[in-house]
Nucleic acid binder design. Structure first.
Length: 195
DNA sequence: TTGAGGATTCTC
DNA sequence: AGAATCCTCAAA
């Protein structure tokens, strides 16, 4: 069943761990189980795109919950988030990794660099590429599925003992323990080696 | 108008 | 470890 609007209408640090084991689904048949997420919390979070208030780029984050916020970075990668909280808060959950379950051939075609299935969606850029998520899907309603993308539950509960720790790839608020993932899951992204 | 940096990935 | 690659935004 589709997650209701109210599921998202909370602090992202509450929503994030509950998104583990939910399914990201596209209308063309692609589906993957979310296994890694991070919370980004607006004005209280120096690492969030929304920290300094609304801009053209982060406008979707400040909109209603349950929508997809898509951003572009490093000149080549897209990132996908579920907007949370209330309108104006600018908070959300970054979808960092997922385990493909349906439409895997389509994901392989979308990700020619992936050598194994654990490379298909084990990172925010990889996940977005596997699902064909770009700017065109920014603002899509994940509850109504109006643009062919939704988040649903197949009844699998979130893990009772998720791994919690600092977020990856940021330079500010590096100590916030706002990353969650399914324990010992092969589709979780690899933490970059320390410099 | 400019320039620094980025919620990353891939290859060497 | 270094390259790829370009958008965004704050500052000037």
């Amino acid at each position: 069943m589709v997650l209701p609007r109210d599921f998202y209408r909370r602090h992202p640090a509450l929503v994030a761990p509950e998104l583990l084991n939910k399914l990201l689904v596209r209308a063309d048949g692609r589906a993957a189980r979310i296994v890694e997420v991070e919370a980004y919390a607006g004005h209280e979070d120096p690492a969030a795109h929304s920290f300094r208030g609304p801009t053209a780029r982060n406008a979707t984050m400040f909109g209603p919950p349950g929508h997809l916020y898509v951003y572009f970075t490093y000149g080549m990668h897209w990132g996908s988030n579920a907007v949370c909280g209330e309108v104006g808060e600018g908070v959300g959950v970054l979808l960092r990794a997922a385990e493909p379950v349906l439409g895997i051939e389509s994901m392989r075609a979308a990700r020619p660099a992936a050598r194994r299935d654990t490379d298909l969606a084990s990172g925010p850029g990889k996940l977005s590429q596997a699902f064909g998520i770009t700017r065109e899907l920014d603002g899509a309603d994940l509850v109504l599925g109006d643009r062919g993308i939704r988040i649903v539950s197949d009844g699998t509960p979130p893990p009772a003992d998720p791994v919690v720790g600092p977020r990856i790839g940021i330079s500010k608020a590096t100590d916030f323990p706002w990353r969650w993932h399914v324990p010992d899951h092969p589709h979780v992204s690899v933490r970059p080696r320390r410099p």
